[in-house]
Amino acid sequence: MTNSQRARWGSAIRYFILVLGCLLVLLPVSWMIITSLKTMQDITLSKGVELFPNGPTVSNYITIWSEYPMLSYIKNSLISVGGSTIFAVVCAALCGYGLSRYEFGGKKFLLSFLLVTQMFPAVMKIIPYYKILVNVHLNDTAFGLMIVYASFSIPFCTWMMYGYFKTISTSLDEAARIDGCSPLQTFFKVVLPLTIPGLVATTIYAFLQNWNEYMFASVLIRSDDKKTLTFGISSMADAYRIQWNYLMSASIIASVPTMLIFVFLQKQLIAGMTAGAVKE
């Protein structure tokens, strides 16, 4: 086989794998979209592969706005999740940088402490979190939820940032230090710009993790007008009734902000490394 033949085969296989992966993703998602275009009656009564016994309808997308306070769900999610993401990523970037650049007493302990805190089964944290928030009068508020979410994200984000910082040579820091930069300046002006892809990935991660969180919101939030989007969506399904059509159309609406964020930020993600950086 010549080189060009091999290359062609290689790229054919690549496309094949990609298309296969996309199908695996898109088939369930398309079922979601189809469901969101059905009436509840069609969902219950249609048999077999019959898609739209009475034709597709967009009425679900309109009805949910009046049936449920979708706007306030979105607002609450944005406040608590957006706030926690910013807070967590700032803490994590600083912490990750400190861990990757310095040797100091308690470093090992701190690293495993951050990890260990992730390991306690989440269900057993529900009651203590509630107690904390009640004690500081922050239960049933978006701000309270924000703090809780930040504590979920910080460990992972720190570890991620720690990982990214480690891939960047310390010779850059030294060069900056010689040029008279303070540690903070070195961090902000020299090292951080180089980890933008990692920073963006971490941010997206933190945002999504909490955007999709349900269990804690369902316990820590009580008022209807303070529910987050996932909490609101999940109340469309309970033991007595599952409103598939609402559930699916609301889920699609709920994923629009995350899609937008992703589409917007993936430019940063693929921007790659700053040209000419000193590498190992």
Binding site: I126, I127, Y130, S218, V219, R222, S223, D224, S235, D238, A239, Y240
Partner: peptide, 15 residues
């Protein structure tokens, strides 16, 4: 009015 699904009732009450 305070909403709470039957599934969440006891968790909410115990908290």
């Amino acid at each position: 009015p305070v909403e709470c699904s039957m599934n969440n009732l006891y968790t909410t009450l115990i908290n």
